[in-house]
């Protein structure tokens, strides 16, 4: 009985460590660089309107359609969240060709 309780307590402590580790990993794992690639989600193929772009770290561009740009790099003062529009400056010559995300 004592051993069972001891094992349960150890297991719970390990659980707390695992869950805490997950939260810490998420908190400290965020990017700190200043230039981020935003994916074009609307607008014309050559759009430079920040509202046409969203931040998605996958950068899932399909770079085989020369008619469309699909992403661009923007300088940001803080790390964007997934789905944010850019608030900073567009990096010159950073428009990438390819199909945009739907």
């Amino acid at each position: 009985m004592k051993t069972k309780i001891k094992n349960s307590v150890m297991s719970a402590l390990l659980g707390v460590a695992v869950l805490g580790g997950a939260v810490l990993m998420q908190s400290f794992g965020e990017k700190t660089t200043e230039t981020f690639t935003f994916v074009r989600v609307s607008g014309d193929s050559n759009s430079i309107d920040p509202l046409d772009y969203e931040y998605h770290p996958t950068n899932q561009c399909i770079a085989n359609n020369p008619q469309n740009n699909c992403s661009a790099d923007w300088s940001e003062s803080s790390t964007p969240n997934i789905g944010d529009n850019p608030t900073g400056t567009l990096q010159p010559a950073s428009l990438k060709k390819g199909s945009r995300l739907q």
Partner: peptide, 25 residues
């Protein structure tokens, strides 16, 4: 079991932190 817990806590917490963009996506 612990791997699932780590994975779900990590991704769940991340989604909650970015809930607006998650819903928008």
């Amino acid at each position: 079991i612990y791997g699932y817990a780590l994975l779900y806590m990590y991704t769940g917490y991340d989604k909650l932190k970015n809930i607006k963009s998650f819903i928008k996506g």
